[in-house]
């Protein structure tokens, strides 16, 4: 346990890197901007088929989450890049050999590092959603938008449910990023394969074989959030409990495969 704590504390120091901070900044900036655009469109009376659901939910307790949740795909993509690039960079930069000489227990090192990285991703997400929410809540009165439903007990419950499921989603995406980084051992490959898998491969499978794709990890992690607030993502066809269980199984699977692969690897970087 001491080894894991040491690895965690060591990893925290690396968050000062501009590349890590830039990732968190991009998540915060772009997501807040998307939330602002969505809010501005609805508040200024924009209409359109794709906006119908959002407009209908705007004045309900789900309204705020529906607006700030429009950037979820971006948050997922940035989280995947952050985790996979951060981990794979240890191979690409050659820093892994320094780390494993100081901490030969590879699993303890991976556990400590991933705890820190996932925590960073979750804090970035929390900060992003807090910033988006605050901005929308500040702008709303000026546009004549009532926020009473958003800040009601029901509104806060929806927000909390959304947060918990979004956190689960990002934990799942992070473990997927970890597995890809451990297997590819290169920043370019890890980021490329990760994004191609989530954005392209699963997208194609969803069109070709939707019954199969609903069990795929990217889809499962995404739908558990949609189950809480349908306006921010697809809902799970298999139902929330089944999707949640599948998501947890995927997470366990990614962790187990990573834990089996890393100790068997020759570190040649």
């Amino acid at each position: 346990m001491t080894s894991v704590v040491r690895a965690f504390r060591s990893e925290v120091l690396k968050f000062r890197r501009w590349s890590v901070l830039a990732g968190a900044g991009a998540m915060l900036g772009a997501s807040t901007f998307i939330a602002y655009l969505t809010f501005h469109q609805i508040a200024s009376g924009a209409t359109g088929h794709e906006m119908t659901g959002l407009i209908a939910a705007f004045h309900t307790p789900e309204g705020l989450v529906a607006v700030i949740g429009q950037a979820r795909s971006l948050i997922i993509a940035i989280a995947l890049i952050l985790v996979s690039a951060n981990l794979a960079a240890e191979w690409t930069q050659g820093t892994l050999r320094n780390l494993l000489v100081r901490q030969p227990n590879r699993l303890a090192w991976l556990a400590g590092k991933m705890l820190a990285v996932v925590l960073f991703v979750l804090l970035s997400m929390l900060l992003t959603l807090a910033a988006s929410s605050t901005l929308i809540l500040i702008l709303a009165p000026g546009q004549g938008v009532q926020t009473t439903a958003w800040t009601s007990a029901e509104g806060l419950r929806v927000f909390a449910e959304f947060l918990v499921n979004e956190a689960l989603c990002l934990i799942g995406v992070s473990t997927l990023g970890m597995l890809i980084a451990v297997l590819t051992r290169s920043v370019a490959s890890a980021v490329g394969i990760g994004l191609a898998y989530i954005l392209v491969f699963e997208g194609i499978i969803a069109v070709v074989a939707p019954q199969v794709s609903q069990w795929f990890p990217g889809r499962v992690f995404n739908t558990i959030v949609g189950a809480a607030v349908p306006l921010v993502g697809p809902t799970p066809a298999q139902g929330y409990p089944a999707a949640l269980l599948t998501g947890v199984l995927w997470i366990v699977g990614f962790v187990v495969v990573s834990a089996l692969a890393l100790p068997r690897q020759d570190i040649k970087a």
């Binding site: 120091l13 890197r17 590349s19 930069q93 820093t95």
Partner: peptide, 20 residues
Amino acid sequence: AFYPSLSGRTNLEVLARLGG
């Protein structure tokens, strides 16, 4: 091999913390 965007001191601290 180092983290180029971190200072020399922080690079050393990363490994010092890891090794206790």
